[in-house]
């Protein structure tokens, strides 16, 4: 984590509105917590995922501070912020993949379509079946393309061949991969190119018709052409799926997302429509970050 107390130049020519504290970043580094600057446009959206005062600790170290955000339904929400700001941690908390680490503690809760995620007695496995996740590096399973796509159904005990076939085709079409792999469905998925593998992972994630699709820097391991394809795909998936995407790439965030959340050192600083965040954010720190002055 960049502990950059003196690194922020603090020159007032950022032009951002609002009387933000001059050294907000330094204060955050010193431990302050500010309420999130949430834009009013978000209140008009239907909420699919509601994060309610979520805190997360890795051992004694706090990684997320009182995150409150409502992820809108059918939209693409991008999480941006400098390395180590907790974007991925937040994303991985949504489907409780972080639970696998024994040192993680949390407080607060999230609601997926009104159902508690961290409440007592929640069946994590059932919960994860309601979400899909795409990882930084493509991680196809060591099996055929077909079996990769229908994996979620297989572990759900689905045996009906026609259902599986149908889901496989629909998901692969959804991931814009069908035409490329329809003749090699039963070959190993490991022989495909990186971009194809990542689209296969997207197909796998959408096969179970998730209520929210989590994407953790899905293009960071891909070349520009494959990245373009994935971005086009995200564009197509918009509306049908609610997507929460972590990205390092500002252009990607501005191109693909409807809403953008800016995180810094475990805090959610500003959250609003992408156009606003990238052009006239309420906080000067957000503008500095999205224009590349720091981070």
């Amino acid at each position: 984590m960049t502990d950059d107390r003196n690194g922020y130049p603090g020159n007032g020519n950022g032009g951002a509105a609002g009387g933000a504290a001059k050294n907000r970043l330094a204060e955050i580094a010193a431990g302050a917590v500010f309420p999130t600057e949430t834009h009013p446009e978000l209140d008009r959206e239907t909420v699919v995922l509601d994060v309610q005062g979520f805190n997360l600790f890795y051992g004694a170290k706090q990684a997320l501070y009182d995150i409150r955000m409502k992820i809108p339904k059918g939209k693409v929400t991008a999480l941006v912020g400098p390395s180590g700001c907790g974007k991925s941690t937040l994303l991985r908390s949504v489907n409780r993949i972080n639970d696998l680490l024994s040192t993680v503690r949390i407080s607060g809760d999230m609601l997926l379509n009104g159902d508690s995620i961290y409440g007592h007695g929640v069946d994590v496995i059932e919960l994860r079946k309601r979400m899909g996740m795409v990882f930084q590096k493509p991680n196809p399973f060591p099996m055929s393309v077909y079996e990769n796509v229908v994996y979620a159904l297989r572990i759900d005990g689905e045996r009906d061949r026609s259902t599986l076939d149908e889901v496989c085709e629909r998901s692969l079409r959804g991931a814009a991969l069908w035409d490329e792999v329809k003749d090699r469905l039963h070959e190993s998925a490991l022989g495909m190119s990186g971009g194809q593998q990542q689209r296969l992972c997207i197909a796998r994630a959408i096969a179970a018709e998730p209520e929210v699709l989590l994407m953790d820097e899905p293009c960071s391991a891909l070349d520009p052409i494959a990245t373009n394809k994935i971005e086009d795909l995200i564009e197509q998936l918009k509306g049908e799926y609610s997507i929460l995407i972590v990205t390092h790439n500002m252009q990607q965030a501005s191109r693909t997302s409807d809403y953008t959340a800016f995180m810094y050192l475990g805090r959610l600083l500003e959250y609003g429509p992408t156009a606003t965040i990238f052009q006239t954010p309420h906080l000067r720190e957000t503008l500095d970050y999205v224009t590349g002055r720091f981070g």
């Binding site: 489907n95 993949i97 696998l100 496995i125 059932e126 994860r128 079946k129 979400m131 899909g132 996740m133 990882f135 590096k137 991680n139 399973f141 060591p142 994996y151 979620a152 572990i155 759900d156 992972c201 796998r204 994630a205 179970a208 989590l214």
Partner: peptide, 14 residues
């Protein structure tokens, strides 16, 4: 790779 395990868990596998 742990990414494979995570991928499987993310699909709702036990």
């Amino acid at each position: 790779p742990n990414s494979m395990r995570e991928g499987s868990f993310a699909c709702g596998a036990g």
